[in-house]
Simulated assay, not measured.
Amino acid sequence: MHRLTTRHGLDMPAIGLGTWPMTGEQCTSAVRQALALGYRHIDTATAYNNEDAVGQALRESDVPREQIHLTTKVWWDRLAPTAMRQSLEDSLRALGTDHVDLFHIHWPGQDWDLARSIETLVALRDEGKARAIGVANFPLGLLRQVIEELGAPLSAIQVEYHALLGQQPLLDYARQHDLALTAYTPLARGRAAEQQVIRDIAAKHGVLPSQVALKWLLDQDGVAVIPKASSRENQLANLAALDVPLDAQDRALIAGLPKDQRVVSPEFAPDWNS
């Protein structure tokens, strides 16, 4: 499988399994099945309330832990140093592992000490509890501050990105600074596959519209995707998106779709234009 690597320790399969909002046995079953089908990248977070379920799947799987890329995240209300450390310890205990492969700050904090939070994030990496570190849902201005002013050795940023939402400035910056960009909600919760342009391209190649939407992202340098899927059929279809042969005309048509449809923007979200 195609992998993304960075100079700061990231080595991540380009397709992962997103686990939100699955919990309990549904989540355990989906992760266990995904690993059996060939997935080697699992994405979770403390806020998903499913790290224990993911951990159970890891214990039940025949795939060795060292072959699995595991991402988790700390919630925005636990970004003080002691709280962040405890959050990761809780995650490691639930997941049944002594380290994660990528540890993200899930959302920017509110009235927080950014420098101390980033200092703690880096320390957790240096201590080996996270092989690589990153941030999620940071607008470009804040990401620039973390990289340029604080000098954090980030490996990745995770943001909503799909055929109906543009992230070109952020993607350009990530490439300039050797960060992978992981696209969550890569199918826009089904909206991307409903677009006639994407449906026409899928018919042209004899594939699913969802596979076209995923491959459009995967064809972009430095981009990974983490679609959520629980059924065997959908998990296999998402993996097979890597083999969809989009041509330049297909990519141009998808690039021409409106790019202003944000699906995820909770009340505590940052100013996306900052």
Rank of each mutant, 00 (worst) to 15 (best):
A152C: 00
L154T: 00
S155C: 06
A156K: 02
A156M: 10
I157F: 05
Y161N: 05
A163Y: 03
L164N: 10
L165Y: 10
L165C: 08
Q167T: 09
Q168H: 05
Q168K: 11
P169K: 06
L170E: 04
L171E: 03
D172S: 06
D172P: 01
A174M: 02
R175I: 01
Q176C: 03
Q176Y: 01
H177I: 02
D178A: 05
L179D: 00
A183G: 04
A183I: 02
T185E: 14
P186E: 08
P186V: 12
L187R: 12
L187E: 14
A188E: 07
A188T: 07
R189H: 14
R189Q: 15
G190F: 04
G190D: 04
A193M: 15
A193Y: 10
E194G: 12
Q195E: 15
Q195C: 13
Q196C: 03
Q196R: 15
V197T: 15
I198L: 15
D200V: 09
D200G: 04
D200M: 09
I201Q: 03
A202P: 09
A203K: 13
K204W: 01
K204S: 08
K204F: 03
H205Y: 08
H205V: 09
G206V: 04
G206H: 02
P209V: 11
P209F: 11
Q211Y: 09
V212G: 05
A213D: 14
A213Q: 13
A213S: 15
L214H: 12
K215C: 09
K215F: 07
W216N: 08
W216C: 08
L217F: 03
L217I: 04
L218G: 07
D219T: 13
D219E: 13
Q220F: 04
Q220I: 05
D221N: 05
D221H: 11
G222S: 02
G222E: 02
G222W: 03
A224L: 13
I226E: 14
K228V: 09
A229Q: 05
S231T: 15
R232D: 14
E233K: 12
N234E: 14
Q235V: 00
A237I: 02
A237G: 04
N238I: 07
N238V: 08
N238A: 12
A241F: 12
L242P: 04
L242G: 14
D243L: 09
